[in-house]
Design a protein around this nucleic acid. Structure first.
Ligand SMILES: O=c1ccn([C@H]2C[C@H](O)[C@@H](COP(=O)(O)OP(=O)(O)OP(=O)(O)O)O2)c(=O)[nH]1
Ligand SMILES: [Mg+2]
Length: 493
DNA sequence: TGTCAGTGTTT
DNA sequence: AAACAC
DNA sequence: GACA
C-alpha cells in the first residue's frame, strides 16, 4: 500500500513483521498522506539519528518527518485500519525521551546479541538518493495505475476479506481510516490534462496504425503524467520522469510553449485518420481491417453496412455502434452484476459472483461489465456456465453472443456478449462473464480486475523473476522456444 | 540491439 | 497463421 | 517510444 502511494521501501529484502521488530520506519507525511517511508536499522547512534532527521527535514520542508517503530505497521495490519502514529513515534524535539525510546527499542533486538557485530546503519544523504533512484524505478514500473482504488462490495463494510495490498494507506485528516472504497471523485486528479489529452490522441492514432510498441511508449508516458502530483512546467521536469524520453519531452515542451502539437494537428487533419478511428471503434475491427476498408474505398459506417463483407462479430459491433460507445455508469454496472448474481444463485447456492474490471477498480464509468464466477466448494462451478447463459437468454437479458468459450468440463469458461436491462431507455451493453475453478480464483481475480497495464507490468515482473503469470496460475520453469511453450513448468499458485 | 504479457477464438 | 479480443 |  505504501509503495502504491508513492512510498519507497528501501530494504525490501527484509519483510516487516513482528520478527523484524527492531526496525524503524522513517515516515514522511503531510496532512493527508504518508508520502514516503523507509526502514532503518536501530543500531543507529544518537548522532546519526539527528543527522539523518535533519537531512530529511531540510529536503522535505513542506512535509513532516517522523521515526516510527515498525510495530506501528504491525498494529495497522492487525487492526486493519490506520492507527495513529503518535504513540509509536520517536520525538526529535524531546531529547530525553528519544534517547530512552531508542535504547528501549534496540534492547529488544540486541539483548541477547552483540550490538557491535551488527552491521552499521547506513543512512547518508548520498546513499538515500541512490536507493531512491533504484526504488523509484521499481515503483514506476510495477505499481498499479492510479485508478486502482479497490472497491469490492460496498455494502459489506468489513474489511476482513481484503488482502493487505489492496488496502489503501490513505487517510482523511478528519477521519483516519482505511479508505478502500473510493468513488472516482476522490481519485487524485490529473494535473496535466492539457498534455495527456494530446498524447492520448497520438496514442490512439498509433494504435490504429498498428504501431504496437510506439503506442506502448505513449501509454506508459501518459499513465506517468496522469499520476504525477504536480503540473509539469518544463521540459527537464518531464524528462526526469521514467517513461518519458527525449521525443515525448520535446512534444510536452511544444505543448507548454504553444498550446498545440503540430505533429498531432497534421496527423489528425488527414482524412484517413478519422475514418480509421471510426472503423476501429467497431467491435471486431482492428487496425488491419480498418485499413483494408479504407483501401476498398469505404468511408462511412453506412458504406460498411451495405457494401463490405463483415464477420459475424463485426455485424453485431456495427448494430450497436452508438450504444457501445456510451460509458456505463457505476450503478448500472451494479444492477447488471446483481441480475447475473440472482440468476446464478438460483442455479446453485454459494456461488461467488463479482463484477471486476474497471468497476472493481472504482472507476465512475465503465466500458463494459466484467463478471467473475466461481464456487468455493471447488466443484459446483462445473456445468453452471451453459445453464446460466441459457437462463439469461430466456430472460431476454443476453441479446447477442460474440464468443462462447466452453473449455470443456472444469476449465475456465468465457463468454463475451451483449446484454440489456429490462428498463425503459436502457442501452445494450457489452458483458464479459468468466467461470473459473476455485483453484484459479486468485489468479483469475487478479487478471480480471486489471488494469491492462497493471497486468502486463506484473507479468513482465514475473518473467524477470523466472516465473510466468497468467489468468490461471503462476508457473515456474516455463521454457519457451520463441513464443511456443516447450514445457508448462511447475504450478506455484 | 533486444524487449516491451499471456491466452483464446474466428476467419 | 494472422487478426482481434480480454 | 523508452529503456537496459
Ligand atoms: O488486453 C487486455 C485486456 C484486458 N485485460 C484484463 C484486465 C482488465 O481489467 C480486464 C477486463 O477487460 P476490459 O477490456 O473490460 O477492461 P477494463 O479494465 O474493465 O476497462 P473498461 O472500463 O474499458 O471495461 O481484463 C488484460 O489482461 N489484457
Ligand atoms: Mg471492463
Amino acid at each position: 500500500a505504501f509503495v502504491k502511494h508513492g512510498g519507497s521501501l528501501v530494504d525490501d529484502t527484509k519483510p516487516i513483521d513482528e520478527h523484524s521488530m527492531p526496525y524503524f520506519l522513517i515516515v514522511i507525511y503531510d496532512e493527508i498522506t504518508i508520502q514516503n517511508w523507509r526502514t532503518i536499522d536501530t543500531t543507529l547512534s544518537k548522532k546519526k539519528f539527528y543527522q539523518s532527521l535533519k537531512a530529511f527535514n531540510e529536503r522535505q520542508s513542506a512535509n513532516k518527518v517522523a521515526f516510527i517503530q515498525s510495530l506501528w505497521l504491525s498494529e495497522c495490519l492487525k487492526q486493519k485500519k490506520y492507527v495513529q502514529i503518535s504513540s509509536y513515534e520517536l520525538k526529535a524535539d524531546s531529547d530525553n525521551n528519544k534517547q530512552e525510546d531508542l535504547k528501549e527499542c534496540t534492547k529488544r533486538k540486541n539483548s541477547d546479541e552483540n550490538v557491535d557485530n551488527l552491521k552499521k546503519p547506513k543512512i547518508s544523504e548520498q546513499e538515500l538518493m541512490n536507493d531512491k533512484k533504484r526504488i523509484v524505478k521499481y515503483q514506476e514500473e510495477y505499481k498499479s495505475d492510479s485508478d486502482s482504488s479497490y472497491c469490492d462490495d460496498e455494502s459489506t463494510m468489513g474489511l476482513s476479506n481484503k488482502d493487505f495490498f489492496e488496502l489503501q494507506l490513505y487517510s482523511k485528516s478528519t477521519n483516519e481510516s482505511w479508505t478502500c472504497a473510493h468513488s472516482s471523485k476522490e481519485q487524485t486528479e490529473n494535473l496535466n490534462e492539457h498534455i495527456t489529452d494530446k498524447l492520448e490522441k497520438m496514442l490512439t492514432i498509433y494504435e490504429n496504425k498498428n504501431e504496437k510498441y510506439r503506442a506502448l511508449g505513449y501509454q506508459k508516458a501518459i499513465l506517468i503524467l496522469k499520476r504525477h502530483p504536480k503540473q509539469i512546467q518544463s521540459k527537464e521536469e518531464a524528462l526526469a520522469l521514467p517513461g518519458i524520453g527525449k521525443r515525448i519531452a520535446d512534444k510536452i515542451w511544444e505543448i507548454l510553449q504553444t498550446g498545440d502539437l503540430r505533429k498531432l494537428d497534421e496527423m489528425s487533419s488527414r482524412e484517413d485518420t478519422n475514418s480509421l478511428k471510426l472503423f476501429t471503434d467497431i467491435h471486431g475491427v482492428g487496425p488491419t481491417t480498418a485499413h483494408l476498408f479504407l483501401t476498398q474505398g469505404y468511408r462511412t459506417l453506412e458504406d460498411l453496412k451495405t457494401k463490405a463483407n463483415l464477420t459475424r462479430q463485426q455485424k453485431i459491433g456495427l448494430k450497436y455502434y452508438d450504444e457501445f460507445k456510451q460509458r456505463i455508469p457505476r450503478d448500472e454496472v451494479s444492477k447488471i452484476e446483481n441480475k447475473v448474481k440472482c440468476a446464478a444463485l438460483s442455479l446453485k447456492h454459494g456461488l461467488i459472483v463479482q463484477a471486476c474490471g474497471s468497476y472493481r477498480r472504482g472507476q465512475a464509468t465503465c466500458g463494459d461489465v466484467d463478471i467473475l464466477i466461481t464456487h468455493p466448494d471447488r466443484k459446483s462451478h462445473k456445468g453452471i456456465f451453459t445453464r446460466l447463459l441459457n437462463l439469461l437468454h430466456e430472460q431476454n437479458f443476453l441479446t447477442d453472443d460474440l464468443v462462447v468459450q466452453e473449455e470443456n468440463c472444469d476449465n475456465q469458461c468465457k463468454y463475451l456478449g451483449v446484454c440489456r436491462l429490462d428498463e425503459a431507455n436502457s442501452l445494450h451493453r457489452r458483458i464479459d462473464i468468466i467461470v473459473v475453478p476455485y483453484d484459479e480464483y486468485a489468479c483469475a481475480l487478479l487478471y480480471f480486475t486489471g488494469s491492462t497495464h497493471f497486468n502486463r507490468s506484473m507479468r513482465h515482473l514475473a518473467r524477470k523473476l523466472g516465473l510466468s503469470l497468467c489468468e490461471k496460475s503462476i508457473n515456474k520453469n516455463v521454457r519457451r522456444k520463441g513464443v511456443e511453450k516447450v514445457n508448462t513448468g511447475e504450478r506455484l499458485v
